[in-house]
Design a protein around this nucleic acid. Sequence first.
DNA 1: GTCTATAGCCAGATAGAC
DNA 2: GTCTATCTGGCTATAGAC
Lengths: 203, 203
Amino acid sequence: MKKTKDDSTESNILNAAKTIFQRKGMDGARMQEIADEAGINKALLHYYYRSKQLLFEAVFKSVFSLLAPQLNKALNNDDSLMDKIKNFTKNYISFIIKHPYLPSFIINELNRNPEFVQKLITEKHFPNIEKFKNQINENIEKGKITSIKPEQLFINIMALNIFPFIASPLLKGFLKISDEDYNKLLEERATEVSNFIINALKV
Amino acid sequence: MKKTKDDSTESNILNAAKTIFQRKGMDGARMQEIADEAGINKALLHYYYRSKQLLFEAVFKSVFSLLAPQLNKALNNDDSLMDKIKNFTKNYISFIIKHPYLPSFIINELNRNPEFVQKLITEKHFPNIEKFKNQINENIEKGKITSIKPEQLFINIMALNIFPFIASPLLKGFLKISDEDYNKLLEERATEVSNFIINALKV
DNA sequence: GTCTATAGCCAGATAGAC
DNA sequence: GTCTATCTGGCTATAGAC
């Protein structure tokens, strides 16, 4: 039974809304723009989702639940710590190419509305990093890597992977390089970042 | 001749606008809110700055020119590479405490309007990283640090320092910790980050 | 379910008194 | 230079025809 690609009006709207909200954010997005993107009338947005706020929440949840399993899979498989770091970095790049606006969208909207995190945490597929933390501690005990708080290592991995994408215009400016050259740097990072981290963890 | 703290209406407006625009962004900010913050009437905003767009641009330039010399100072002094990395990390924390919304404001508004970077680059005080890049290359040649592209190291330093502040709600959620505990992690990073980087650079 | 038309509100901007 | 009052346009949301 193939999961057919849903082309109903409702999912058509949701997809259009994802595109626009991710690009413009809640405040910058216009219902008219979403209707245009979906190729339907503005009134239909309200017919299916009642209000801009509710449509936005549907988008946010949908987008977040795209990210969460991805992260869970990366953290909770049976790979060694080193392989996880390597694979995370490599996989992140291909994920971001498909969803370039996703990280800054999530981060910005959570900054606008930090209480929302509490609601997300309770959900079934919210990322769980306990196994990953334990794995780090085991590697430290066995003397395989240098001593570091698992939380700090986790933050470092996220930072090194995500930041270059969300801050690209600023970094392009600082480095004074073209879009093309910047993209080359990003591609190099697929291996550069994991090398950097693994070197930093040497005893 | 003490530079008197300017309390004219014009600078009063600019300060209020900085506060509101940094918190809410261009799209989320309201002129009424800025007027309230400044304790004056909405019409006065237009008297001094003509339009929301022009007020925003004044704010952006002012905020950016707060960041730029800070970065220049950190990159272009005569410290050794290792000292620069240590000091950058340490100083960044105290800077961010004074201006918590600044990095995400700059990054977001540049994402909204990437062409704006070109205008900034031409300005006199735009950060210049050439000296820093040369210093990295010298250290590599002398065998003091492992081989790495200066651009990649620069990105890594920025990422490790800035990201934990702009993504704090998301990271708090992933780590499932309280604001208080997260702030402790951030404080630890004043030394944690430079240790991590310096270890990563060992030959 | 989908459209057109429009209500109702709110934000940015201006006019004009003081 | 600062205020009150108001215009104007745009946006969310709804009413109602088909």
